[in-house]
């Protein structure tokens, strides 16, 4: 199939996604990833420590009770599945492993910061740019400001590390 032989213009890709997202908005809600990842975190830890221990933690008892019947989980799983199928069909699937310790350290710190950020704000980058802001929620504007400033600080630090 030709589609899997050449790359797609990201403007076309995001425009198609946006149109689909409007349908999703009508059915369940706008595209989001942070909510699904929060629930996946809950399910993951629940599998490790058990339901009884999990229930002792207020956040998981009162705000995000771990359940598989939560639609946002399936957006994340779908993205991974879609990318896997697409990568196989386009012969772009292969194992990529970071070569340097510094990369592992940066990815670890980055992952932790993203997790803490999602938990604190209840939103992720997708909800910020493609959920809250298009819904004109003032929180979206605050989140965009925070994200842009954070990305600027992160880029500055990253640049210094690369230069060093």
């Amino acid at each position: 199939m030709d589609f899997f032989k050449k790359s797609l213009d990201p403007i076309v890709a995001l425009a198609i996604i946006a149109v689909f997202d409007i349908f999703l908005f009508q059915i369940v809600g706008a595209w989001t990833v942070g909510g699904g990842e929060t629930m996946i975190a809950g399910l993951f830890v629940k599998a490790l420590i058990g339901a009884k221990e999990m229930n002792r933690i207020p956040f998981w008892r009162m705000v995000f009770k771990p359940t598989w019947a939560y639609w946002k989980i399936y957006i994340s799983l779908g993205m991974g599945f879609g990318a896997l199928v697409s990568a196989i069909l386009s012969k772009e699937f292969y194992w990529r492993v970071p070569k340097h310790l510094s990369e592992w350290v940066m990815i670890t710190i980055g992952g932790l910061l993203m997790g803490i950020g999602i938990r604190l704000s209840f939103v992720c980058n997708v909800s910020t740019f493609l959920g809250l802001t298009p819904e004109m929620n003032l929180g979206g504007y605050l989140a965009v400001s925070g994200l842009v400033i954070g990305a600027w600080v992160g880029t500055w630090v990253y640049k210094k590390i690369l230069e060093a």
């Binding site: 932790l112 999602i118 704000s121 910020t128 605050l142 954070g150 990305a151 992160g154």
Partner: peptide, 14 residues
């Protein structure tokens, strides 16, 4: 939301 996404912004670049 500002503080959370600020941390997130640094994290995603890292």
């Amino acid at each position: 939301q500002f503080i959370g996404l600020f941390l997130f912004g640094i994290g995603m670049v890292f």
